[in-house]
């Protein structure tokens, strides 16, 4: 394996989405974005809704929106377990708007605090998605 590359893997519960040798990835960690270069110290972090940026050289090659999940970093590897992952280019702003609206209605209908919390979280995810697309 090339010593100056990171083995990046993006996995969703349903399948392996991406597996590639890259120069750097920037991951939206729960306590701030962090970049992963080769020989990064081992780290496990939770993710917040945001955009993963994959770098080839100095260019951003891919932008992928994730709704949350976990990242595991070792000196050679960066594995992201995503809850939901969509390439930024494929986000349909109109559809997301509609979802936000629907969820807003759900929120008004929700009875228990628990339900409300779940829906509020979903709305946050969609809003982050919209921001990512913009």
């Amino acid at each position: 394996m090339a010593a100056d590359k990171v083995e990046f893997e993006l996995v969703s519960p349903e399948r392996l989405l991406l597996s590639a040798q890259v120069d750097m990835v920037v991951v939206p960690g729960a306590e701030g974005d962090f970049g992963v270069l080769p020989r990064h110290s081992p780290l496990i972090s939770t993710l917040r809704p945001g955009v993963i940026r994959v770098f080839e050289g100095r260019e951003v090659k891919q932008r992928i929106f994730v709704a949350g999940g976990f990242a595991e970093v070792t000196p050679e590897r960066c594995t992201v377990l995503a809850e939901e992952a969509v390439p930024v280019g494929e986000i349909d702003a109109a559809k997301v708007d509609q979802q936000i609206k629907d969820l807003g209605e759900d929120l008004a209908d929700a009875k228990t605090d628990e339900e409300k919390a779940v829906i509020a979280r979903r709305i946050k995810v969609r809003e982050a998605m919209k921001a990512a697309a913009a």
Binding site: P13, G29, A30, E31, S41, P42, L43, I44, S45, T46, F70, E72, T74
Partner: peptide, 27 residues
Amino acid sequence: RVSYEYEPDEGEILAALLPRNLSIQIF
């Protein structure tokens, strides 16, 4: 074994990871 750093911290990650793991096992 590599010793990981944890962000935010072990407890919180575990709290997020365990329900997730339950879903995965069922899936």
